[in-house]
Amino acid sequence: MLKKSLVVLMLMAAMLVAVACGNNNNGNTDAEGNNQNQDDVNAAAGEGEDSIKIVAAHNQTDPENPYQDGLLEFKEVAESESGGSIEVEVHAGTLGTSESELVESLQVGGADVVLVSPGFMSNTGIREIDLFALPYLFDSYDHWEQTVDGEVGDEIADIILEESDNKFKLVGYWSAGVRHYYGKQPLQSIDDLQGMTIRTQTSGVVADFWNQTGAVPTDVDWGELYQALQQNVVDSAENAYPYFVQQNHHETDNGRYTTETGHDYTTRFLLINNEEFESYSEEHQDIILEAAAASVEAERQALYEQEEEYRQQLLEDGGEINEIDKAPFIEIAEPLQDEVAEEIGVTHLLEQIRDMR
């Protein structure tokens, strides 16, 4: 009898402890004053979500560039807003310095978020995005922003999703600056490009434009361009100040002279693997889209600030800059715009863009 009494007392004591623990919520209450247990608190902080890891990549090897600023902002917002249930791993050129490598990584699952240009994306068969690769399409950053942040940008995003069979989701438009010619000699007129090799895309509308100027588009990997300019592999290249000055291209024999052709207010696509995105919870999807929007703002701001900063650095380093009459270049570009827009079925979008000037 004594043993049975002891057993009963021990069971009663255990029950009292369990009740007390169940009522202990460390003082946490919900908005209506009801108690929350610790699991509810953890879930509210994001710990209740399944953890996911996102690999985000761009092709620039120097981490001091707007691409890196944008992806680091993406990382910060995604991780902080998710309470740590989203981890973002940022790669600066380590998954490939060629944008075609990044697109392939996105396709096969080696990366979840990548930054690519329209020219390389068109290699996937989505021809409509060549619209944003057309030279002299925009005449200012305001014009560019109105376009990509408006109806035209929305329609292109829908096209990318649909024509990639729901594989690629566009989550932001970034800029890579205003592109200019730089080479072994300044351009005084368009005739100076005759027979000159230029590192640029070797297919698509960009290559067509440079071919019509008389230049010879030549394929050189971005990570190898400094050496190619120094060793006379190519006569020239074209890019925006924050990118080629960071890589010291202006200090090479064939990169010393910059002519401000201003032929491209560039567009870059921030893409996410949509199959992965659709597998995330609705909460995680919302956070990723919020992080993408924050990254757009951060990248553009960094780019705009660096345009003048690196232009000035080029001059201080002994590089030379000259202006040129753009009319002959635009005379080549506009018929090319019309031809390509009709071919890829976006004439209506081209007209919208022109009307916003």
Rank of each mutant, 00 (worst) to 15 (best):
residue 218 T to Y: 09
residue 68 Q to E: 15
residue 35 N to W: 06
residue 120 F to D: 14
residue 251 E to L: 15
residue 30 D to T: 02
residue 270 L to T: 09
residue 245 V to W: 00
residue 266 T to F: 06
residue 243 Y to Q: 09
residue 95 L to Q: 13
residue 303 L to A: 08
residue 313 Q to T: 11
residue 55 V to Y: 03
residue 236 S to F: 06
residue 221 D to Y: 13
residue 79 E to I: 05
residue 292 A to P: 08
residue 117 S to A: 14
residue 223 G to F: 01
residue 304 Y to K: 11
residue 190 I to Q: 11
residue 312 Q to R: 03
residue 37 N to F: 02
residue 272 I to S: 01
residue 15 M to V: 14
residue 187 L to C: 01
residue 42 N to C: 05
residue 77 V to D: 01
residue 318 G to N: 00
residue 7 V to H: 08
residue 214 G to V: 08
residue 25 N to P: 00
residue 310 Y to K: 11
residue 314 L to W: 00
residue 252 T to C: 02
residue 194 Q to I: 04
residue 34 N to A: 11
residue 235 D to T: 05
residue 351 E to S: 09
residue 182 Y to S: 04
residue 146 Q to I: 01
residue 207 A to G: 13
residue 238 E to P: 00
residue 258 T to G: 01
residue 189 S to V: 02
residue 188 Q to D: 14
residue 50 D to V: 14
residue 312 Q to W: 01
residue 326 K to E: 13
residue 62 D to Q: 03
residue 87 E to Y: 02
residue 41 V to N: 02
residue 344 I to D: 09
residue 161 L to F: 04
residue 240 A to Y: 01
residue 89 E to P: 06
residue 277 F to D: 10
residue 280 Y to M: 14
residue 287 I to Q: 04
residue 38 Q to M: 14
residue 295 S to Y: 01
residue 113 V to Q: 03
residue 91 H to V: 09
residue 99 E to Q: 15
residue 93 G to K: 07
residue 5 S to A: 15
residue 295 S to R: 03
residue 122 S to K: 12
residue 112 D to G: 03
residue 46 G to T: 02
residue 217 P to L: 05
residue 177 G to V: 05
residue 109 G to T: 07
residue 28 N to F: 13
residue 126 I to F: 07
residue 343 E to I: 12
residue 289 L to H: 05
residue 265 Y to I: 01
residue 290 E to P: 07
residue 258 T to L: 07
residue 247 Q to V: 10
residue 132 F to K: 05
residue 135 P to I: 10
residue 293 A to Y: 08
